[in-house]
C-alpha cells in the first residue's frame, strides 16, 4: 500500500502551478491551436514544438466513470471514484467527482472543475454543474 505520489517533471510543472493558482492550464499548440492532455513535448496533430500554456474554461462532460470498492492507496479510502471528463476545449482529463453523485449513468453529465486539497496537495476535481 502507500499513497499516490505525484511526480513533477519539467514539462508538467506549469500545469501543477496553474492548479495551485486555481485555474487549470493545458498545453496548446501555438501553430494549430489544438489543446492536448496529458502534457507532451510535441503537438499530436501537427508535430509543432511551439507550445503555450493556456487556461481552460473548466467545463466539460463526463465521458466515463468508475467507483473503486477496494483500497489501493492510503490516501483514497474506498469507495472512491474517478471520472474521465471531455473538456469543452477537446481533450479528456482524468479527475475525481466531488459533491453529489448522479443517479444512474454519470456519462453525459455536465461538470465544472474546482480545486480541492487532497492529502496536503492541491488538485482539480469535477462537480456536477447546475
Amino acid at each position: 500500500m502507500g499513497k499516490t505520489t505525484p511526480v513533477m517533471s519539467l514539462s508538467d510543472a506549469p500545469m501543477w502551478q496553474s492548479i495551485e493558482n486555481g485555474k487549470l492550464a493545458l498545453m496548446a499548440c501555438k501553430t494549430c491551436g489544438t489543446y492536448r492532455y496529458p502534457p507532451s513535448p510535441i503537438c499530436p496533430k501537427c508535430l509543432s514544438m511551439e507550445t503555450e500554456w493556456k487556461p481552460i474554461a473548466g467545463t466539460g462532460t463526463i465521458l466515463s466513470w468508475v467507483v473503486f470498492h477496494r483500497k489501493y492507496f492510503d490516501d483514497f479510502p474506498p469507495p472512491y471514484n474517478a471520472v474521465a471528463v471531455r473538456l469543452d476545449e477537446g481533450p479528456i482529463i482524468m479527475t475525481n467527482l466531488v459533491g453529489e453523485e448522479p443517479e444512474g449513468s454519470w456519462i453525459g453529465k455536465r461538470v465544472s472543475l474546482e480545486y480541492v486539497d487532497h492529502d496536503g496537495r492541491r488538485q482539480h476535481a469535477a462537480r456536477i454543474a447546475e
Binding site: P6, P38, S40, F76, I93, M94, T95, N96
Partner: peptide
C-alpha cells in the same frame, strides 16, 4: 513513474 502520462492519472487514485 517517469513515464510522461503517469502523474495525470495516478494522483486521482486511478488504478
Amino acid at each position: 513513474p517517469n513515464q510522461p502520462d503517469f502523474e495525470f492519472e495516478h494522483p486521482f487514485g486511478i488504478q
